[in-house]
């Protein structure tokens, strides 16, 4: 039944050629010509949209980055790579790179760990389908909330007078006074934790579907060979999940580096750049300092870094296909 609605694992993203029925008789060449043009016709709306709203803005941002005083100044002057020099000599930029890396790597690793642990539990044959269904819905809950909501919720929970501090204080873990989002020593850890909470379900669901797709025969064969639970996990489960894990990790990495709303709404990048990431850094240059030229240079640098990630992602997908 799964074949009806989901492409089987081995279908390439774009299918092998399908020959269009040959036109017969008169007007054959005209009809052929028309047929050749047909696919382009189907692609026109997408093409127009991507050219106007993807290609054009990328060209625009690159040219902005080479000019001085764009948008605010009527006749911006060409300044070459000066804006890039300004970004690359700004220590906050490197704080932002470092914070983005810490935030992203920790998020992805823990998303994977929690996602896998929960998926394994939800896939256990020990429990009935009903109870697993109930837990699955509970586990997906954080994913149903938009980032703005997640941010507000955790500001409430992590407030100095909030319930997290109360519980930690009551159990004697901390003194119950921590300013999680307002202290330079805890803010980055706090926003990372929030991101972990809101993002693991996506990983979990993919891994769960992956687990359910592993043929039973593999486990049976492993058992016949005398493999115990751990060995089965190590030699059957993990290798079978590998492609999903790599895809998800790369995707999650790309998305997490782009995170803006969560940080903007919890800490705004502060205190003192403690949670400044590349997106908040760039946003502030543009819309708080109104220095659109330097912001464009930062934006182009971010684009370049993302393209490196995208390259690995596309290559991985190609390898799988």
């Amino acid at each position: 039944m799964s074949q009806i609605t989901r492409p089987p694992e081995d279908t390439p993203v774009l299918a092998a050629p399908v020959r269009v029925s040959e036109a017969s008789g008169r007007g054959r060449s005209i009809s052929r010509f028309k047929q050749r043009l047909t696919p382009y016709g189907f692609l026109t709306p997408t093409g127009v949209l991507l050219v106007i709203l993807m290609v054009t803005p990328i060209i625009m941002v690159i040219s902005y980055s080479l000019l001085d005083g764009v948008i605010t100044n009527k006749n911006p002057a060409f300044v070459g790579f000066e804006n890039y020099a300004e970004v690359l000599t700004n220590p906050v930029f490197f704080d932002a790179v470092r914070n983005t890396l810490v935030f992203t790597v920790s998020s992805v690793v823990v998303h994977f760990a929690i996602g896998l642990a929960f998926a394994l539990m939800l896939n256990s044959p020990l429990l009935g389908d009903r109870i697993k269904g109930l837990f699955r819905v509970l586990y997906i809950l954080p994913w149903l909330f938009t980032v703005a909501i997640v941010a507000v919720l955790w500001r409430l929970l992590l407030s100095p007078n909030g319930v997290v501090n109360y519980l930690l204080g009551a159990f004697g873990v901390t003194d119950g006074q921590t300013e999680w989002l307002a202290s330079t020593s805890t803010a980055l850890a706090a926003v990372t934790f929030i991101n972990i909470w809101s993002g693991y379900p996506f990983f979990m669901i993919s891994l769960l579907a992956g687990l359910q797709g592993i043929p039973r025969e593999l486990y049976e064969a492993a058992r016949v060979d005398g493999a115990g639970a751990f060995k089965q996990f190590r030699h059957v489960t993990l290798p079978q999940l590998r492609p999903i894990i790599i895809s998800m990790a790369l995707l999650d990495f790309i998305w997490t580096t782009q995170q803006f709303a969560l940080i903007w709404m919890t800490t705004g990048g502060g205190p003192i750049a403690a949670t400044e990431v590349l997106s908040t850094f760039t946003y502030k240059l543009a819309f708080t300092r109104y220095d659109f030229s330097v912001a464009s240079a930062a934006a182009v640098l971010v684009l370049l870094m993302s393209m490196v990630l995208a390259f690995f992602y596309v290559r991985h997908q190609k390898a799988r296909d």
């Binding site: 774009l14 050629p17 050749r36 709203l53 941002v61 782009q258 803006f260 934006a299 971010v302 393209m307």
Partner: peptide
Amino acid sequence: RYEFWGKKTINVVVVSVQAVPPITLLIP
């Protein structure tokens, strides 16, 4: 359903467009 010139390139463009960071597009 069609095989056409540039299909592979267009496919790669469509896939990689997803990795363009929103913040890069925001200013333009």
